[in-house]
Computed example of a mutant assay.
Amino acid sequence: MTTFLLLAVLLGLLALVLRWAFGNDRRAVPDYTGDDFGLLREVAEEPTAEAAQALAGRLRAAGIRATVVSRGGAHRLMVFPADLAEARLLLRR
């Protein structure tokens, strides 16, 4: 009887420790709107895909990683935050 009680107490303690260690589900809620692009930030928005691709080509030629995202008729030029300031300067020229 005492062996069973000791085993039950140990399993209960193990369950509490595991719940404490792995029980917090802090994962981000998925974005179902399509407006969250993770680390990418918008540097420009163009009305046509050709204009956005031309600007992306200018950025890529300067060594800046860029991508074009099309949503709702607008074409967004996206870059990483570390490249945002340099990309804005390059696109102003």
Rank of each mutant, 00 (worst) to 15 (best):
A74I: 12
R41W: 05
L13F: 10
D25M: 04
G12C: 12
A28R: 07
A54K: 11
G38Y: 06
D83A: 15
M78P: 04
V29G: 00
M78F: 04
A54V: 08
L59P: 06
V43G: 00
N24M: 07
E42I: 08
L7F: 05
V9F: 02
A8P: 00
V79G: 00
L55E: 02
P30D: 01
D31G: 07
A51Q: 11
W20R: 15
V43D: 01
A62K: 04
T48L: 13
G34F: 08
L13D: 03
E45Y: 05
A74F: 06
D35C: 10
A15G: 14
V69D: 14
A51M: 11
L14Y: 11
A28Q: 08
A52K: 02
A66L: 11
D25S: 06
L77N: 00
G63W: 07
L16E: 12
G23K: 08
L39Y: 01
A66W: 02
V9T: 06
A85G: 05
A44M: 10
F80E: 15
L40M: 14
F80M: 04
G34Q: 03
A51N: 07
R65N: 13
G23L: 10
A54S: 09
A8C: 09
G38W: 03
L18D: 11
A56S: 05
L13W: 10
A87Y: 04
G12S: 13
G73T: 04
R92A: 15
V68M: 02
G63I: 09
V29M: 08
L84M: 05
R41F: 04
T48C: 06
A61L: 12
L55G: 00
M78V: 08
T33P: 01
L13G: 13
A85W: 03
V43S: 05
A87P: 13
S70T: 15
R92S: 15
L11R: 09
T48F: 07
V9H: 00
G73P: 06
A56N: 00
L5V: 10
P81M: 02
R41N: 08
A66N: 04
L55Q: 04
L59D: 01
P30V: 08
E42Q: 14
E42V: 09
R26V: 04
E50Q: 14
N24R: 15
A51S: 14
T2P: 00
N24L: 06
M1L: 07
L77R: 03
R88L: 09
H75R: 11
A15Q: 11
L14S: 12
D31E: 12
L14R: 10
E50S: 14
L84P: 00
D25I: 06
A62V: 05
T3S: 11
G12T: 11
A49E: 15
R71F: 12
A49V: 13
R60N: 11
A28H: 03
R88K: 15
L77D: 01
A49T: 12
F37H: 10
T33C: 00
A28Y: 06
L6E: 04
L6R: 05
A15C: 13
E86C: 05
G34A: 11
N24E: 07
R19P: 01
A74L: 15
R58S: 01
S70R: 15
R92H: 12
A62D: 11
L91H: 01
E42M: 08
L7M: 03
A87E: 03
L14P: 02
G12I: 09
F4H: 02
H75C: 02
R41Y: 04
